[in-house]
């Protein structure tokens, strides 16, 4: 067995072992499960740190600062100074890194909001409107199907949004309640929400099931590798 194969075998063995440790959670929380979890977290954190240093700090900060041109150096310095102040967030002088965090949060918020508005809000609104527009459908599809889909989509969208409306009216002598119309409509929206949550739960289950199948398949491959040829004949 060459080294590659050896490394693969070791990898498979470790994978098999760690999978078994994870499956031990069926018996309850135990040290084996915690060992596997800690190994995974540790390896992931270490790999992330290495990637960050190799793929971000060195090529984007150190090399330009050392070997780059004047402009690159100036830019690197301008980028390095906020990064340096960001380290103050873990020190007693954490207030000094507030401005660096503010820059990061501000830029990220701006990109997120802009994208959400242009990529989600408006398109979704247009899509809801167009769902009831027969001209938006292709000719291959039935118009009644499109219409029904549109109605369902609009109904679901509106009722779901109404469900999240909690404004009430002050009624003397009575407790604050929503309007009866909104109260009834929100019930429909509750239905759509329940369906959505159900679909999400199903998707999660399918994902987990797929992972289970993949793991079991890996077990079987490992066993076949180590010589359990008995099952391979089946």
């Amino acid at each position: 067995m060459n080294m590659t194969n050896m490394m693969d075998f070791i990898g498979l063995s470790l994978g098999f072992l760690l999978t078994i440790l994870i499956f031990s959670y069926l018996l309850g929380d135990n040290p084996f499960f915690r060992l596997a979890i800690h190994i995974f977290i540790g390896v992931a954190a270490g790999y992330v740190a290495i990637v960050t240093v190799n793929n971000v700090l060195i090529p984007r900060l150190i090399i330009p600062l050392v070997q780059g041109s004047r402009g690159e150096r100036l830019l690197s310095i301008l980028l390095f100074i906020p990064s340096l102040f960001l380290f103050f967030k873990v020190t007693p002088w954490r207030k000094l890194g507030n401005w660096s965090v503010a820059i990061l949060v501000g830029i990220g918020a701006a990109a997120a909001i802009g994208g959400a508005i242009t990529g989600t809000l408006f398109p979704q609104i247009l899509g809801t409107i167009n769902s009831v527009d027969p001209s938006a459908y292709s000719i291959t599809t039935s118009r009644w199907d499109h219409a029904i889909n549109g109605i369902i989509i609009v109904l679901g969208t509106v009722t779901t949004l109404i469900y999240f409306h909690f404004g009430t009216q002050d009624t003397p002598g009575q407790s604050d309640k929503r309007l009866p119309v909104i109260e009834h409509i929100s019930k429909i929206g509750r239905v759509f929400l329940a369906i959505t949550f159900g679909a999400l739960y199903a998707g999660v289950f399918l994902s987990a099931l797929a992972a289970l199948v993949e793991r079991l398949s890996s077990f079987w491959v490992y066993l076949n590798t180590i010589g359990f040829q008995l099952f391979s004949s089946f």
Binding site: Q124, L200, G203, L206
Partner: peptide, 26 residues
Amino acid sequence: SAQAEPLIQPYFRSSPQLLKGYVSGI
């Protein structure tokens, strides 16, 4: 993944269609 399909399907079903195609799960 199958768990993300309900959330990205509107992007495929909407018009303008931002998502041209997708494959979800097994």
